[in-house]
């Protein structure tokens, strides 16, 4: 079973909670996918009451771990303060650390990311860094104390799917025992299957499910695709060959001259 920061994680699909057509559809997508982890954010509260009370109840009823994020933060300072607020609010040391460096691509600022990760690890956080697929950044984050990494496969919400498979494969090969979760950029269930076949440990996605015509069905499709990819990886996938090899035995074949 997958273990992240000492916790056993029963399924390998993790879901973001944003952009769903309704709270009920979100709840059903999480439930029917069997997602083990859901991501949440913090935003300014509205005066005058618990307008988000349904969402609060959703959190309280969740049968999944909560992973708060620092989405929207563009500096070390912002990300660190947001992480501290998230820990106080959600009573968890887990934090999905996002430090955005470019507003067009939402590409992480990897320099600020490493700096923020160092600070938060020293403060006892279990950091899940949202990062590019750069191997050196991965090494720096591990040196900073991150015990899991979350490389993107394409920009957030782009639905492009893996655009640099070679880099992701290199990262997987370089850190064979470190939990690696692909986060962001996935569009199709087959993208998730392909990444899991490479040996990634889990997939975190949001837009591809939330913006589907039927988010609940898409969540289920991703759950099955991720399971299929993982089983394929564990079973041992054949390397491709240039020549054909008959699958039916040749020995004993009748001869009709």
């Amino acid at each position: 079973m997958l273990t992240l920061y000492g916790k056993n994680i029963p399924s390998r699909i993790f879901l973001g909670t944003a952009q769903y057509p309704s709270p009920m559809i979100l709840e059903n997508a999480v439930r029917h996918s069997g997602a083990s982890i859901v991501t949440l954010s913090l935003r300014r509260e509205i005066i005058g009451g618990e307008q988000r009370s349904r969402f609060h109840k959703f959190i309280e009823m969740l049968d999944a771990y909560v992973l708060p994020n620092t989405a929207g933060c563009c500096s070390v300072k912002e990300a660190v303060i947001t992480a501290r607020l998230a820990r106080d609010l959600f009573k968890t040391n887990w934090i999905k650390l996002e430090v955005i460096g470019n507003q067009d691509t939402l590409q992480p600022d990897i320099f600020a990311l490493v700096e923020a990760a160092k600070i938060l690890v020293e403060e006892g956080f279990d950091v899940f860094p949202y990062m590019t697929d750069d191997l050196i950044v991965a090494e720096r984050l591990v040196a900073a104390g991150c015990k899991t990494l979350m490389p993107w496969c394409a920009p957030i919400g782009s639905a492009k799917g893996p655009s640099n498979t070679a880099s992701l494969r290199t990262m997987r090969d370089h850190f064979p025992d470190l939990p690696l979760i692909v986060d962001a950029g996935i569009g199709r269930p087959s993208h998730a299957t392909m990444l899991m076949e490479l040996g990634f440990d889990a997939i975190l996605l949001n837009t591809a499910v939330a913006k589907a015509l039927d988010p609940v069905k898409m969540a289920q499709a991703f759950a099955q695709a991720i399971t299929a990819g993982r089983l394929g990886f564990e079973a041992g996938i054949l390397n491709p060959r240039d020549i054909a090899i008959p699958s039916t035995p040749v020995i004993g074949q009748a001869v009709f001259p």
């Binding site: 973001g16 979100l26 991501t39 954010s41 300014r44 509260e45 989405a71 609010l89 957030i156 837009t207």
Partner: peptide, 29 residues
Amino acid sequence: NELVANNERSNHRIYEHDRIEILSPMQGG
């Protein structure tokens, strides 16, 4: 810009021109 934890609010004095952020959970990816 400094966290004031839930259990510290009753003892945390506020002053003129303080900048206060009050946040709550929101959907996020």
